[in-house]
Amino acid sequence: MSDKGTADTAAAARHARFGKLPERIRYEDMTEEREATPNGGNGVSYNPEGSWQYFSCLALDLGL
């Protein structure tokens, strides 16, 4: 008998917590519009001569 009461109490607690869906969020609240900057906003320019430093290459690691 006590198992049924415990199960009903647990079911009632779950239903009170998860029994309904959360409030709907409008699409306008999920998006943000900002002005785009030419360099992506990070202030770092691309350096083609130094780009090899950021990639791992097995041939370079072995000195080939």
Rank of each mutant, 00 (worst) to 15 (best):
M1A: 10
S2P: 02
K4P: 00
K4D: 13
K4I: 14
K4Q: 13
G5L: 10
T6W: 01
A7K: 08
A7S: 06
D8Y: 02
T9A: 15
T9M: 09
A10K: 07
A10T: 07
R14M: 14
H15S: 14
H15F: 14
A16P: 01
A16W: 06
R17C: 04
G19A: 09
P22A: 08
E23L: 07
E23I: 06
I25W: 08
R26M: 15
Y27I: 10
Y27A: 11
Y27W: 13
Y27S: 08
E28N: 11
E28C: 10
E28T: 13
E28S: 13
D29E: 14
D29S: 11
T31H: 14
T31Q: 13
T31C: 12
E33G: 04
E33W: 14
R34T: 09
E35L: 07
A36D: 03
T37W: 04
T37S: 13
P38V: 02
N39C: 09
G41I: 09
G43C: 08
G43P: 03
V44P: 00
V44T: 07
S45N: 02
Y46G: 00
N47Q: 14
P48N: 02
E49A: 01
S51G: 01
S51H: 03
W52V: 02
W52S: 05
W52R: 04
Q53P: 00
Q53R: 15
Y54D: 08
F55K: 11
S56M: 05
A59S: 13
L60G: 04
L60M: 03
